[in-house]
């Protein structure tokens, strides 16, 4: 923990040049028992998140929660204002006039569901995060352009600095480097 003596290592990062190479390597890393692995790519690669063992996200739950609360809230708002707090008798028509409430129930449901998707995605991804150790890796800027990176974190129980380093080189990485915390 003493930073003065030895810089703590966030992990070991390997660079690949094509999607096929990184997916292949990621599968082997996963098979070797590494679990705290991150992969970085300039565009979404479905196989890549599968390869590192990430199969299911929970975005649909936040969307459902948002949508339901929006729709129920929209209904309650209209019901309470039109039938309880501010009832207006128009020729004896029912105060709970459901058909005319439908459009706003629908719209408020969609609105909160959309916020559920966006906020769910941002919060679960831990964004905004302006600083992250992986940005220290030389050339990592090209992760958003044309390079693919695989990072095994030092917190992984199987992590062993030099051995992990060698292991990644053996997987055909175009370059391997330590990432400082």
């Amino acid at each position: 923990m003493n930073k003065q003596e030895e810089p703590t290592i966030y992990g070991v990062m390997a660079r690949f040049d094509t999607p096929t190479e990184i997916v292949h390597a990621a599968k082997q890393v996963h098979a070797a028992g590494y679990r705290q692995v991150n992969a970085y790519s300039p565009f979404p690669i479905e196989e890549l998140s599968e390869a590192i063992g990430f199969h299911k996200d929970r975005i649909s739950l936040t969307v459902l929660a948002g949508g339901l609360s929006g729709a129920i809230g929209g209904f309650l708002l209209q019901y309470w204002t039109s039938a309880i707090d501010y009832p207006i008798n128009v020729g004896g028509r029912p105060l709970l006039s459901l058909p005319s409430f439908v459009p706003i129930i629908f719209e408020s449901g969609i609105l909160l569901a959309a916020f559920g998707a966006v906020i769910g995605m941002i919060v679960m991804n831990g964004l905004p995060r302006p600083y992250h150790p992986v940005f220290n890796a030389p050339g990592f800027g090209r992760a958003s352009r044309d390079r693919f990176f695989l990072c095994i974190k030092s917190t992984d129980p199987k992590f062993d600095g030099p051995a992990t380093h060698e292991f990644l080189i053996g997987l055909g990485a175009k370059g391997v480097t330590d990432v400082e915390e």
Binding site: N38, Y40, S41, P44, I52, F54, I59, A114, P130
Partner: peptide, 25 residues
């Protein structure tokens, strides 16, 4: 960009959120 770094897990959630937004839109 809020610190976006192309993490595979992030992309996975991103794609789900984007698809769901499309489904809502």
């Amino acid at each position: 960009a809020m610190g976006w770094r192309g993490d595979a897990r992030h992309w996975h959630r991103y794609e789900s959120a984007y698809l769901l937004l499309a489904g809502l839109s």
